[in-house]
């Protein structure tokens, strides 16, 4: 359960906490040319949460998601991952990220891409391949396992990226505008796959989007503007 405070901050009971951001600010550059992407955000992500992070382009959604995933550090404020102990960056078993743009390794086929995070973690070749194929089958993508990324459409590539997250079985799935470059129909399919993956893993799902229709499918919606989380969405259900 997420509690939205008067200043827009969201918090949950610490036992369920995956991510806690306290007054997090992230700036690009320094001095007069510094651009503040995230400004004093305080929020919590609980296990099993389904959160849509909304906001216009440049509002700081991607940066906040990267900070949550540990891919970027906060310039000020504090980020913690109570359930993980330390930053989950580079730990596909804790946080899985689906990027907005193409994020498959071009020189690996689909099953190779899906199994790659497992191999990085030291899983054996055979086990990684098995889990990758399972993940693809789970999402109905088994038929494309031997294809190269360049042979896939944008929607197919995004679904493979989701399968890659699923194979690694993280507790938190973060997707940065996964449907941003896709048409509505394809975007809907990708979102279906994301929900299915999160359900299967009992993982929290945080998806950034500027599409209200997509956001409408999430029980919890955060609105971001000029780097800050706004309180106007009120209490989530």
């Amino acid at each position: 359960m997420t509690l939205i405070q008067a200043n827009g901050a969201r918090s949950v009971a610490s036992a369920e906490l995956l991510v806690r951001c306290v007054d997090v600010t992230h700036s690009y550059g320094t001095g007069e040319t510094a651009v503040v992407a995230v400004a004093g955000v305080t929020c919590d992500v609980a296990a099993n949460a389904r959160i849509a992070l909304m906001g216009p382009s440049g509002s700081g959604k991607s940066t906040l998601l990267h900070v949550m995933a540990g891919l970027e550090s906060a310039t000020s404020g504090g980020v913690s991952w109570p359930s993980f102990g330390s930053s989950p960056a580079g730990k596909p078993g804790e946080v899985g990220v689906v990027f907005q743009g193409p994020s498959l390794i071009p020189s690996l086929d689909v099953v190779g891409n899906v199994g790659f995070p497992l191999l990085v973690q030291g899983v054996s070749d055979d086990e990684a391949e098995k889990r990758a194929l399972d993940a693809l089958d789970d999402l109905g993508l088994g038929w494309m396992s031997t294809k190269l990324p360049d042979e896939l459409s944008g929607g197919q590539a995004q679904r493979v990226a989701v399968a890659r997250v699923l194979a690694a079985a993280p507790r938190l799935i973060i997707a940065d505008e996964p449907t941003g470059q896709l048409d509505h129909e394809t975007g809907r399919h990708v979102l279906d796959v994301l929900f299915r993956a999160a359900d299967r893993l009992s993982a929290a799902l945080v998806v950034s989007t500027h599409d209200p229709e997509i956001a409408g499918r999430f029980p919890e919606r955060w609105l971001m503007h000029d780097g800050a989380l706004l309180p106007k969405e009120g209490l989530s259900s």
Binding site: K91, V97, S103, P117
Partner: peptide, 14 residues
């Protein structure tokens, strides 16, 4: 092919 390494890094490659 720097892109490959960037993806590999965010996927956990050290």
């Amino acid at each position: 092919r720097r892109r490959t390494f960037a993806i590999a890094t965010v996927l956990g490659a050290n």
